[in-house]
């Protein structure tokens, strides 16, 4: 059981799953769900149309799931998982975003990270920045 807040002198909680971190986890959860479900349907119904794009969708879904688990968990293991997943997400959205801006031929169908997440209001681009900042902000000192 977590201790109830006892007064203003209480040490700030440094868990990633507390305070504004919960909003971040909620957004990550939504993306984990939507990216995975989307990739699942794409792969199940029309995989041959754009295998690279659909596999990329699935990879993005897995990364969002791992990031959600890492941010929602406690302890150094969960924190390492969150760093790795959010870091990979940052690299992924920048790489796929850049590739899809300059070369549309390899990506005939959209993924979450296409054109820096344009199909999702650019949230996929902002999310890893906030995630990395939050992990740094809450790091043990």
């Amino acid at each position: 059981m977590p201790e109830p807040a006892s007064g203003p002198a209480r040490e700030p909680v440094r868990a990633t799953s507390s305070g504004p971190g919960r909003v971040l986890i909620a957004v990550y959860g939504v993306f984990a769900l939507s990216a995975t479900a989307r990739a699942g349907v794409q792969i199940a119904t029309r995989f041959s149309e754009a295998p690279l794009a659909y596999l990329l969708s699935a990879l993005a879904g897995v990364v969002y799931i791992l990031a959600t688990i890492g941010l929602a968990g406690h302890g150094p293991g969960a924190r390492r998982l969150a760093w790795a997943a959010v870091g990979f997400e940052m690299v992924g959205v920048l790489t796929v975003g850049t590739l899809t801006v300059f070369d549309t031929a390899d990506f005939p169908d959209d993924t979450v990270w296409s054109v820096f997440g344009r199909g999702y209001g650019f949230v996929p681009l902002v999310l890893p920045v906030l995630g990395l900042w939050w992990l740094r902000h809450t790091r043990p000192r």
């Binding site: 909620a26 959860g29 769900l33």
Partner: peptide, 29 residues
């Protein structure tokens, strides 16, 4: 299925820790 499930989960998660951020979690849901 998603349209029905997301909001109750978000509301549960939002009220589990009663801070100012709970409202934003509900809004995300």
């Amino acid at each position: 299925v998603v349209s029905v499930c997301v909001l109750p989960i978000a509301t549960q998660f939002a009220t589990a820790e009663p801070t100012r951020w709970g409202g934003a979690v509900v809004a995300v849901g």
